[in-house]
Design a protein around this nucleic acid. Sequence first.
DNA 1: CTCCAGGTTCCGG
DNA 2: CCGGAACATGGA
Length: 301
Amino acid sequence: MRLTSLPNVPTDLALTLGSGQAFHWVPLGKGWIGAIDETPVYLEQPGGIGRVMVNSEAAGVASRYLALDHPLDRIVASFPQDETMRSASDFCAGMRILRQSKWEAVATFITSSMKQVAHIAQISHTLRKRFGERLRLGEEIVFSYPTPAALAALEESDLRACALGYRAKNLLGAARMVASGEVDLEAIGRLDDLAAREELCRLPGVGEKVANCALLFGFERLRAFPVDVWIERVIRDCYFPRRRSVTAGMIRDFCAEYFGPFGGYAQQYLFHHARLTWDSRRSGTKVKKSEKLGVGLKKSK
DNA sequence: CTCCAGGTTCCGG
DNA sequence: CCGGAACATGGA
């Protein structure tokens, strides 16, 4: 496989692919394989730092997907200068917000509710393998994420069989609304953040949090700030210490304002940092660098 | 076995 | 607007 190097901008590929934004990258050799829309892709970063290498045919889509045009320095500089934010920024140096497809962002986060990242990945792989397009990458096979139309044609039982649980009905309903044109993701892409979020929330299984994930990861809304259980812990513990009756509304309003125009980036850094270091925070143990790297996904058979 | 996970929805204060 | 409960599944 012929590899091409992408523009040399600050990037940590392992951190970016393994931080719970996208769920399908599988370790292979020194890198990862997966699909970006319908393009099979191999990515690696020799030495874990420096230029990202990609199979030549995918250089264009990979460069866009990895959002190498995001000015990380300016983004980090825009964050509030508090201790919590600074530790997270240090921990996540080089992490980028991926530019994923709209439907994949919506769909994967519909399946994410009350699921660990590993489970979401498992569901994503099962859906891809059963209902996605089979793509060849050298000797390897990868699968694209199933289209709205592909999922819309199924029955709920087909999705239940993918261990989706109660999320099956939501994913199916959303796929049907998108496939029929009742909800137009491209049109939503032209709305302002507020209107776009409202439209996304018409989809079953999409509430404020999932809508914000979709906006951040699929609609280039870098200000969108999803509040999940981890972020809620961070906000309560670090920004409203020993304070009772901090409501969800207060947290939402605080986050939407305090973290600024790149709040989505701040959120992703806080999320990843908290998720990997929360336990050791109490015990005071250090987190090994090896533990913040890697996707840690078993290859599905 | 118990606890919890990148929530949403519905229902009674 | 707020807190609770139901909703499935699997890893720790």
